[in-house]
Structures are given as C-alpha cells and as structure tokens.
C-alpha cells in the first residue's frame, strides 16, 4: 500500500502499438473466457410488448401473456408491477410502455400528462374484480349486510359475536375466514370495506385457498368468510352468499350485478390502457387483440376474476380496430 512508486526505471524494451486504452481493452478481453458476447452480435428487430401497471390486473395479464407466448414465441412480452398510477406517470405516459394495467380509470391529470408526450391512451375493460361474502347455508338469520356492518365484523377490535352486530342474531362467536394479507383480495377488501381509519382484524383464518374458506364456512354454522367471486359462482350450493347493501338496498352478487356496477363496493372493473401510437406495431396490435379476446374466457376466472361479457369484448375490439385504423392510416 505504501510502496514507493518507482517511476522512470530505465529504458529498454519498448513495445509499440499499445494505446493507453489497450490496458483496459486487454483486461476486458480476458473476461472473454466468461463467455463471448452474444448481445452485441444479435441486432435486428426486437419484437417486444412492454406492459406495466396494477398488480391487481397482473394475474390476468400474466395468464393471457403466457397463452400468447405459446402461440407467438417470436414476441417477448414483459410485465412489470408498478401500480396503476406509477405505471401511468412513470412509464406509460413518457412512452416507455405499450400497455398499462389499471385497477381504476385513468385520471384527468394522467390523460393530460400522456397528451403532453403525444400518447393517446385507449381504454379496454379486461375483467371484473368481485368479492363475495359467504356464510353457512344453515345461517338462516342472515341474507344481507350493510357495508357498515361488514366493517364492524371485519375491523380490528370489532364484533366478536353475531349478536354484537344485530341484537336479534345468535349470541354465538364468529369464526372468521378471510384472505391472506399477501393477496390482492385482502388489499381490495381493506380498501372497499375497512377503510383508512381501522385495520383488518388479525384473528382470523387467513388463507388464499378458496377451497379452505368454503370448507371452513361449511363446517361451522356461525362462520363468515369472503373470497373472489369466481369461486362462489362455481359452488353456489355449498355455501350461501350474502347480499350487500351500500345504501341503495340489498344487491346479491352475480355476474350481472358485478358487471353493471350495482354490486358495490365489492366489485370493480379492471382495465388495461394501450398507447394508440404503439398500436402501429403489429406485435402490439396482435397482443392487444389476443388480450381482449381471451379476457372473455375461462383464463380470467381461473385466476379468480370475472371475465368480460361478449358484448364488452366486441365493444373493446371495435375500439381497438378504430384506433388501429387511425394510426396505420
């Protein structure tokens, strides 16, 4: 470390042709033994579809992209989970992504930001996220809950017994079956029902396996649980779904009420936004078309969401073709 720099030395063997940078160059070459550089060699046309945005929509996008990849292995699809808003303002509107997934509609500010950069977002509804509150089929005292009652049941330090919610209900303890805190279902339930002023209760059976919730609720007359709608729709007889009253009367969960917006606050549409300018690229067009078509199929319900109807699909497709026609002239 403290070695004297022996500058000068003598003169003698002088090799020519060594540029200074060769020092760095030669050492770089040595790392060639770690493998030749395949990156520089491959040029050409990278056929990529870049997607960012909501982590709620991510499972749908991933499932559809996986199916797309099986048909079109020449196109590389990448999906980042950045959140709806982060995806818009950091990636989509600056023109870095082709699609942005969103669990809400694009805001005015975001449309403006996109406009400033010459990006026109085209909205497509790709699924509906709905939650179903379920009880034991023998729980004949309950058919409907208000959102406030639901909050009282599920918030920390909330109701412990059915009679705490309504006096005429049994003086029996609840058994709670809910979504695991890791899940989007949990986040959504907290957002829609619990709100900011309270926490979700922590003394409940947390699971992401819908089947476990069904078994748990089936096994106890005083149990209550919630999970994604799609699983209930496949098992409507084994458990009982509770209607939800958000102030406009009781609404039972169904495909129809989830899609038309009556089943609030436990249903919300999920979107993906395409940059119109990106639709000039054939691979982006193909992917979006594929996305919309598959969004109406079982692919979506397999990941726990409600697929779009064929009408919505056709509206989407029409909007897509119009947008494509504009950019391709």
């Amino acid at each position: 470390m403290v070695r004297e720099p022996t500058s000068g030395g003598g003169r003698g063997v002088s090799r020519r042709g060594f540029l200074a940078v060769a020092g760095a160059g030669a050492t770089a070459g040595l790392s060639g033994c770690l493998g030749s550089n395949p990156i520089a060699a491959v040029g050409g046309d990278p056929r990529e579809v870049a997607i960012a945005g909501s982590s709620t929509v991510f499972p749908v996008a991933e499932a559809i992209a996986a199916a797309f990849d099986e048909e079109r292995s020449d196109v590389t699809v990448s999906i980042s989970q950045t959140g709806s808003g982060g995806g818009f303002s950091n990636f989509f509107c600056p023109g870095m992504t082709d699609l942005n997934n969103a669990s809400r509609e694009i805001s005015e500010g975001e449309i403006e930001q996109c406009g400033d950069n010459g990006i026109t977002p085209i909205e497509f509804t790709v699924a509906t996220d709905a939650l179903t509150v379920v009880v034991n089929p023998e729980a004949d005292w309950i058919d409907c809950l208000t959102v406030d009652e639901l909050r009282e049941i599920w918030r920390a330090d909330g109701a412990q017994r059915w009679s705490d919610v309504r006096e005429e209900w049994p003086d029996e303890e609840f058994e709670f079956y809910g979504a695991d805190t890791t899940s989007g279902t949990f986040d959504y339930f907290v957002e829609a029902v619990i709100g900011e002023d309270a926490n979700h209760r922590s003394n409940y059976y947390a699971t992401e396996r819908d089947r476990t919730i069904v078994q748990g609720v089936q096994g106890n007359r005083h149990a209550i649980g919630y999970f994604g709608f799609s699983f209930y729709s496949e098992n409507p007889d084994s458990i009982k779904a509770v209607a939800i009253d958000a102030g406009d009367g009781c609404v039972s969960p169904s495909l129809e009420t989830a899609m038309n917006g009556e089943y609030t606050p436990l249903a919300r549409p999920l979107f993906t936004y395409a940059a119109q300018q990106s639709l000039a690229e054939p691979e982006v067009r193909d992917f979006v078309r594929f996305f919309i078509e598959r969004a109406a199929t079982d692919i979506v319900s397999e990941v726990g969401y409600v697929p779009i109807t064929e009408e919505v699909r056709d509206e989407n497709l029409q909007r897509l073709e119009e947008a494509v026609a504009e950019v391709t002239g």
Binding site: T82, G86, F88
Partner: peptide
C-alpha cells in the same frame, strides 16, 4: 418503488 405512486408526487 413498486407501488401505486406517481413519479412527480410527494409520496414518490
């Protein structure tokens, strides 16, 4: 870094 906040917001 991977959340729902916009690039210009105070949260970011």
């Amino acid at each position: 870094g991977a959340s729902d906040v916009t690039g210009q917001s105070i949260a970011y």
